[in-house]
Nucleic acid binder design. Structure first.
Lengths: 201, 201
DNA sequence: TGTACATCAGTGAACGCGCGTTCACTGATGTAC
DNA sequence: TGTACATCAGTGAACGCGCGTTCACTGATGTAC
């Protein structure tokens, strides 16, 4: 019962996508190539027609994550011109992204992803930096628009915005998705806004 | 060349401590019982004189982490009476703790720790909640002292304080410890303070 | 204080399972003529 | 439009390594008398 033959291009996306999904509910150590293959109706060894190793599959997953993060930044930029609105929109989108791909925050932290090899650690670092750079740029934009305090450090603010989502994402995961991510983001945004906004009460 | 015989009590602490240290530079999947044993001068099978399984060793590590987190809260409470001072002191201590035990933030997120079994996930959840509960209590204290805005949600603020450290800890790790954790904490504290303080401007 | 015995931490060899990876083979797909 | 061939995705059996775990044995430690 051989699976339908599809191009390597398509299979690569399917494999990375399936891996990302499945990493939402288990760790990389727990995720075998056999699991991934089964998910898309292939035999384990078929993976090797498209990737050279399990490591290469993980690299593809990281690449996918990086693209989705940056997509969100772009979408938020398209949505509004006001920097504070853009930041808020980005927050909402990232909450949505985490809900749809619970694996993302965990992968960025994962012992396995980060420790297994230095090259991968560098890859993750690059992704995170690229994302933070875009966010910091939004903050600076707000400073030029005079809606964000001019005296604060844009990089610090960008990292703090990430700090709204990240610990909340853990709690959400730990609680079996009971914790209300969106509500926390809403409330924390209020605090963030109070901290960075240049319009004092 | 048999190792000196020590009591199970002592060995348990040595094993958990060694594991925690070593997890700073590698993932749980990469950390073998053989590695741990070697670190403290034992043979792999000797671990089984003190723990029933690798899982049990990890449980001991989590227990250790939980105690260290709560120790910091207590120390900060002893240090000052002012709630904002206590929160700030706690932030400083947690930065210090992360620097000394880089494994901590990563373990709390680790795919492996969280996914391998549900019981452990529950353990981590308990630890995190206990910690956040104490921090939220400090926030409420500040509200009673009128130094923190009365209208904000204490749990949200507590989680945001964690959000100052956590993403920064990742960046610190990804950058090969180049990123200046303490300086970020300092700057982010300024933002946090502006957000929660009841004394406007 | 000395002796006898039970307990218990440490040892090293061996087992066995899971899983990443390899390999020879198959048959569908697409291209050249 | 039909045929011949090269390419390439999919298969399943087998391999082999790493590592958690077991087990019979040793010898030090502490306690009972």
């Amino acid at each position: 019962m051989a699976a339908k033959k599809l191009s390597t291009e398509i299979r690569k996306e399917q494999i990375a996508g399936a891996a990302l999904e499945m990493l939402g509910s288990r760790g990389i150590g727990e995720l075998s190539l056999a699991d991934i293959a089964q998910r898309i109706g292939l035999v384990p060894s078929a993976i090797y027609r498209h990737f050279e190793s399990k490591d290469e599959v993980l690299d593809a997953v990281l690449d996918l994550i990086g693209r989705r993060l940056l997509n969100n930044v772009e979408a938020s930029q398209a949505e509004s011109g006001d920097a504070l609105q853009r930041l808020r929109g980005l927050l909402v989108r990232q909450v949505q992204l985490v809900r749809e791909n619970p694996a993302i925050p965990r992968i960025m932290f994962s012992d396995d992803v980060l420790s297994r090899n230095e090259k991968r650690k560098a890859t993750v670092y690059t992704i995170v930096r690229a994302y933070l750079k875009e966010v910091a740029e939004l903050v600076r934009q707000g400073q030029r628009q005079k809606v964000i305090r001019g005296d604060l450090d844009a990089d610090t603010a960008a990292l703090l915005l990430l700090g709204i989502i990240q610990p909340a994402a853990v709690l959400w995961h730990l609680s079996g998705r009971q914790f209300d991510l969106a509500q926390h983001a809403e409330q924390a945004w209020g605090l963030f806004h109070a901290a960075v906004s240049s319009s004092e009460k």
